[in-house]
Computed example of a mutant assay.
Amino acid sequence: MVGANLKSETMKLMEKRSGIEAEMNAIIEQLCLPGGPGLSGNLVDSEGFPRADIDIPFIRAQRNRLAELKNDHQGITEKINVNVQVLHSAKLTSTPKESGVETNQNASVVSVGASVSLQNLALRDSQGANEVDIISGVPFAMVDEIADASPAAEDGLQLGDQIVKFGNVKAGDNLLQRLASESQVNQGHPIPVTIMRQGALFNLSVTPRTWQGRGLLGCHFRIM
Rank of each mutant, 00 (worst) to 15 (best):
S183E: 03
N168T: 02
A129N: 11
V206Y: 00
Q85A: 12
G36C: 03
N104G: 09
R222N: 06
V101Q: 04
T194L: 11
K7V: 13
S8I: 06
M14W: 03
Q127A: 12
K91A: 15
N186C: 10
M142F: 00
N130K: 15
E29L: 09
L176V: 01
R197G: 11
E21S: 15
S8W: 03
A129S: 09
D161I: 05
N203I: 01
L33S: 08
D161A: 06
I146N: 04
S94R: 12
E102N: 07
L121Y: 13
L43Q: 02
S150H: 09
Q62A: 13
M11R: 15
L201C: 06
L204C: 04
K170Q: 08
V164H: 01
M196K: 14
K79N: 14
L159G: 06
A129F: 07
A171S: 15
T10P: 02
G172W: 10
G36E: 09
V101W: 07
E145A: 09
G128V: 11
G160F: 02
G100L: 12
F166H: 11
S8N: 13
P208A: 05
I134S: 04
M142W: 01
L6D: 12
S89D: 15
Q127K: 13
Q127P: 02
R124H: 14
P34W: 11
G137W: 00
T103F: 12
T77R: 07
S108I: 08
L176D: 04
H88I: 13
A90C: 10
A122S: 15
V82I: 02
F166Y: 14
N64T: 13
N64D: 09
V143F: 00
K91M: 15
E98G: 06
G113R: 14
L201N: 08
L217G: 02
F58R: 08
N168V: 03
D161H: 07
G19Y: 00
A171C: 05
A129C: 03
K12R: 15
S136C: 09
I59K: 05
L87C: 08
P50I: 00
L159Q: 09
N71L: 12
S205T: 15
A122G: 10
I135A: 08
G41V: 04
P192L: 06
G35M: 11
G36Y: 10
S8V: 07
S115F: 04
Q62D: 07
Q158M: 12
V44W: 02
N25R: 05
F140D: 01
L201M: 12
S89N: 15
H220P: 00
G167V: 04
E68T: 13
S40K: 12
